[in-house]
C-alpha cells in the first residue's frame, strides 16, 4: 500500500512544485528553497513524520525531507542536551547524504567531461 502512496504523494509534491514554477514564473532555486523551508516547517506537530509513515519514499525522496530531517535532528539534539546542541544536530542526520553526494560528484567530475 505504501508503494501506491509513494507514487501519489511523491508525484503530488512534484506537481505542486511545477505549478508554482510555471504559474509564478520562478526559477528552480526559488522552488527548492521554498520546499526545503516547508519541509522544515512541517516538523511542527510531527506532520512530516506522519507523511513518511504513510508514503515511505514518497516523502523521503523529495527535497522537503532534507529540511525536515535537519530540523528533526536539530530539535532532538537540543532536547537530549542543551540548547546549543541545536547547531550540532542540524547536519547530524543529513550529513551522510550530503557527504556522499559531494564524494560522488567529485568522482564524476574526474571521470566525465562536460558534454555541452
Amino acid at each position: 500500500m505504501t508503494i501506491v502512496f509513494a507514487f501519489l504523494i511523491g508525484g503530488l509534491i512534484c506537481f505542486i512544485a511545477q505549478l508554482l514554477l510555471d504559474g509564478l514564473k520562478l526559477q528552480n532555486v526559488h522552488i527548492t528553497v521554498l520546499f526545503v523551508f516547508l519541509g522544515s516547517l512541517l516538523e511542527c506537530f510531527n506532520l512530516y513524520d506522519r507523511l513518511i509513515e504513510i508514503s515511505g519514499a514518497g516523502a523521503l525522496l523529495p527535497i522537503c525531507s532534507f529540511g525536515h530531517s535537519m530540523t528533526e535532528s536539530a530539535v532532538n539534539y537540543a532536547l537530549n542536551g542543551n540548547y546549543f546542541d541545536i547547531f550540532k544536530g542540524v547536519f547530524a542526520s543529513t550529513s551522510s547524504g550530503i557527504s556522499f553526494a559531494i564524494f560522488i560528484s567529485f568522482i564524476c567530475s574526474l571521470i566525465f567531461k562536460p558534454k555541452g
Binding site: A6, F7, L8, C14, L60, L61
Partner: peptide, 14 residues
Amino acid sequence: KAFLFGGIVCLLGE
C-alpha cells in the same frame, strides 16, 4: 509530467 516522473522516482525508491 512532473507528477508522473516524480511519482515514478518515489515509487522506485519505495
